[in-house]
Each structure stands twice: as structure tokens, then as C-alpha cells.
Design a protein around this nucleic acid. Structure first.
Length: 200
DNA sequence: GAGATGATTAGCT
DNA sequence: GCTAATCATCTCC
């Protein structure tokens, strides 16, 4: 059921970002399994992407996770408040990453409500990268954990969407990245209520 | 060691 | 629409 290790070894981070739409993401934190299918992603295209932490081969204690082999997660703190979940892909030394921006929850709904302190009827419960991480119980202490582990993993349950229902638009919150901010590296399911920000 | 800042969100106007 | 919250990390000195 879990996506195989080889799935994450592709260097085509753009195609993979789109392919992850409709895949199921699960975590098992504190003995509680929570998860759902991915409805929104963003690609971070390695050393040539000004929006990426690893732009220009910037290797620091934080970004070194992105330089590891594909098939692990990269988690970091943003704005001092929010944890962000990324999937590291490609091979060692190539810092490609995919930001999970939103999921449609299907498992562990009660646990998510408690973690988010809001009712499940609110789509914002898992809308936006900070919200996804919080709902799934993700924190920096599972940074660099393998997606073959029993803590966090992704499954293919044969849920697929037509190309026409997947939008490709510029990314969110990366205006500082100059012309790279205009690249259509954000993918989402049109009309899904859990997709963050503009959604048509 | 100090200073600036961000792949955001929630709550208020 | 606007802004406070809040701190690890990075960049210089």
C-alpha cells in the first residue's frame, strides 16, 4: 500500500508534485493515526529556485535534510509559529522538495479536532501548510524521518483526478523570489473545500 | 553575540 | 483587508 522508496527517487519534482495530488498521507503520532488525501502541493525546484531554502546550493544545518536522499520528510518552523511538512525527492545532494499545503481528512478526525481546537466542519482544519502539520501532529522532531517508516507515510488508493480538475498556478507567499515566484509550481484540486487561498 | 526575517494563520475591523 | 503573534535560523560583526 505504501508508495515504494523508488517513487521518491525521480528528479522531476514538478511532475511528482502533481502526481501526489489524490495520494493519501498518514501519520501515527502518540499512537493515533491521522491522515487524508492530498489536495494541494507546491514544488521547490532545487538549487535554481530562488523560493527554495536550498537556492544556490545553500547548505546549512537546517537545509541539509533537503540534500539527503529522496523519500524522507523535511520539517521546519516558519514565522516562529508554524511547522511545515515537505517531501524530499530525487537523489542525495539534489535538494528537491514538495510542500504539502492541504489535505482532505479521512482518518483520525477526532484527534485532528482536538489538535486544531476547532470543529471538523471548518475546512480550515487542514487548509494551509501550518494547519496540515498541526492537525497531523507533525513537529520538527520527525524531521528527516523516512516515508517507509510507521510514523509517516503515503499510500496510493487509486484515487485519481482528471488533468482538467487539477490547477497549476504560481506559488503562495514567495513574492521575494523574483521571477521564480511566477512559476506555476502550485497544484491543487479545483473546487475542493480544503484547498487554501484562491481556489477556482 | 546581536539584529533581521520568514514556503503563515487567526482574529478583528 | 490588516496585523499581531513568536522564535529558529541565517547573516554579519
Amino acid at each position: 500500500m505504501k508508495l515504494p522508496e523508488s517513487y521518491y527517487h525521480s528528479a522531476d519534482v514538478i511532475t511528482l508534485s502533481k502526481d501526489l495530488i489524490g495520494k493519501y498521507l498518514f501519520t501515527c503520532i502518540d499512537s493515533v493515526t491521522t491522515g487524508g488525501y492530498i489536495v494541494e502541493t507546491e514544488a521547490y525546484n532545487g538549487v535554481i529556485d530562488k523560493a527554495s531554502h536550498a537556492y544556490g546550493n545553500r547548505l546549512t544545518p537546517r537545509t541539509k535534510t533537503m540534500f539527503m536522499h529522496g523519500g524522507i520528510v523535511y520539517i521546519y518552523l516558519c514565522y516562529g509559529i508554524h511547522e511545515m511538512l515537505n517531501i524530499v525527492v530525487s537523489g542525495e545532494g539534489v535538494p528537491h522538495a514538495i510542500l504539502i499545503r492541504a489535505i482532505n481528512p479521512t482518518e483520525g478526525l477526532e484527534a485532528m479536532q482536538v489538535r486544531r481546537n476547532m470543529p471538523l466542519v471548518k475546512p480550515t482544519i487542514t487548509s494551509g501548510p501550518g494547519s496540515v502539520a498541526k492537525a497531523l501532529g507533525i513537529s520538527r522532531n520527525i524531521n528527516a524521518v523516512s516515508l517507509q517508516s510507521d510514523t509517516i507515510w503515503i499510500e496510493d488508493r487509486d484515487l485519481t483526478f482528471f488533468d482538467e480538475s487539477i490547477a497549476a498556478v504560481p506559488r503562495v507567499g514567495v513574492d521575494y523570489a523574483g521571477e521564480d515566484a511566477l512559476l506555476p509550481y502550485r497544484f491543487y484540486i479545483k473546487g475542493n473545500p480544503y484547498v487554501s487561498k484562491p481556489n477556482k
